[in-house]
Design a protein around this nucleic acid. Structure first.
Lengths: 207, 207
DNA sequence: GATTGTGAATAGATTCACAGCT
DNA sequence: AGCTGTGAATCTATTCACAATC
C-alpha cells in the first residue's frame, strides 16, 4: 500500500539505518533476511521495522522474509539516494575542512563539489581535490556544478546571511552546524546539527 | 512540582535551546521574559515551553514571566552544566582534530583534556594546548585528569573496541561519530551522531 | 511452520483552553 | 490585566497480536 501521507523524519532516520545494515548484509552475500533478524542485528523492534517498510508497498514475502537487494534498492530510491547529490561546503574553518576531507561525504550518493570561505588568506588553499573558493563566486559555482545541497560551517553570527546567500543561489537543502536557529525560507530546507546539544544531553545523564 | 518521572531526551534537547537563548538575553541585560516572547524568539510554542519548565518546580511568576538569571541557573543545574565536565577525544583524524580545535568544546562547562590516537606517526603532534597521546595511555590519563566523557572519532571498524576501552577506563558517557550501532554497557552511555544520516534525511526531501 | 502486513491497543508528546496567582 | 501552571483533548509513534500468505 503506497504512502498517501508524509513519512515522518523519525522513520526516515530509521530507513537510513536499515539501509546501512542492508549494505553490510549484501557485502556478506546474504540474500534474504527476516524482520526479526534485522531487529536483532540493529537493536530495534521487529514490528517497527515491518511497519516502516510496509509504508511503501508489500516489500516482503510472508513466511520468508525480505530480499536484501530488492529492499536496498527500494530504500535507496525512497531516500532519494539512487542518484548523485552534489553539495557545497561554506566555511573552511575546522569543521568545514574536516568535512571536506571526510570520506563518507564523497562515497555513495553525495559529492562535495566546492568549498567556500570569505577570508582572503584561505582562498586558494588546497584540500585534496578541492580548492577553497571565494564566497563571492557562490552563485556562479552552484549554477555550473548543479549543486543542490550545502553544508554550512560558519560562525553563528554569519549563519543566517550565508543561508540567505545559499537560498539565493538556488540551493534546496542546508545542513547547518552553527548553533543558531535559522529563519527558514519555504524553498530551502534547513537541518541544524548542534554538537553542543548532544554533549549537553549526555552531560545531563551524568547527574 | 518536582519531576518524579524521567525527563525525555526531546525535552532535554529543548532545555539546551532555551539555555542558549537565556544566555543571549542575559548578555543583552534582559531580566525578565514571558513564555510567549521566548516562543517568538526561538520558534517554538509557548505552551510547550511552559510545560517543559514546569517539570522542575514553579519557576515563573504568574502575571509576570520568568526571571532570566534564575531560570538560567535552574536549567544549568538541571542539565548538569553547573560544573566542569572533562572530556577526552579518541581519534586524531579529521573530525577528532577539528573537534579538539572547536572553541565551543572548551568554553562553558566542557573541557577537552586529552586527544588520543594509535597511529605512532601522529602521537606527539601539537594542537594548541593539546598534544596527541598514545591510546595505550588512555586509562592512566583518564584517571589523572578525572575525565568523565569521551568523543569517539575513529573509523567505524574501530569504534566498538575503543568504546570498550573507554568504558574500562571509567568513562561514563560517549559521543560517537562513527556510523555504527555501539553495543552499550549499562555504566557507559553512548549517543551516536551520524552525519550521513542527517544528509540522507535532507536528501529525502529533494525528491 | 514461518514470517509478513496490519488493525487495535498502548504509550508518548504536543496543543488547547482556562483556572489560579500576582 | 497578564501570564503561568496544568488537566483535558488531540495528535503521533510504538507495540501487540493475529489473520493472511507463502
Amino acid at each position: 500500500m503506497p504512502q498517501s501521507t508524509e513519512i515522518s523524519s523519525l522513520t526516515i532516520n530509521r530507513l537510513s539505518v536499515y539501509l546501512r545494515g542492508l549494505r553490510a548484509l549484501q557485502s556478506q552475500n546474504i540474500q534474504r533476511i527476516s524482520s526479526s533478524e534485522m531487529a536483532r542485528r540493529f537493536q530495534l523492534s521487529a514490528a517497527q521495522i515491518r511497519k516502516d517498510l510496509a509504508q511503501f508497498g508489500e516489500l516482503g514475502i510472508r513466511g520468508v522474509g525480505y530480499d536484501v537487494s530488492h529492499l536496498r534498492q527500494k530504500l535507496e530510491s525512497q531516500l532519494g539516494l539512487d542518484r548523485e547529490h552534489r553539495a557545497v561546503i561554506v566555511g573552511a574553518g575546522n569543521i568545514g575542512t574536516a568535512l571536506a576531507r571526510f570520506p563518507g561525504l564523497n562515497s555513495g550518493s553525495f559529492k562535495v563539489v566546492a568549498l567556500f570561505d570569505n577570508d582572503p588568506s584561505r582562498i586558494g588553499d588546497d584540500l585534496g581535490e578541492l580548492k577553497v573558493s571565494s564566497s563571492q563566486d557562490l552563485k556562479a559555482v552552484v549554477r555550473e556544478t548543479g549543486a543542490e545541497m550545502a553544508i554550512l560551517a560558519v560562525p553563528a553570527e554569519a549563519a543566517q546571511e550565508n543561508y540567505e546567500a545559499l537560498a539565493d543561489a538556488g540551493i534546496k537543502a542546508v545542513l547547518n552546524f552553527a548553533p543558531v536557529q535559522i529563519k527558514e525560507r519555504p524553498e530551502t530546507r534547513v537541518k541544524t546539527v548542534d554538537l553542543l546539544i548532544f554533549l549537553e544531553e549526555l552531560a545531563s545523564t551524568l547527574r
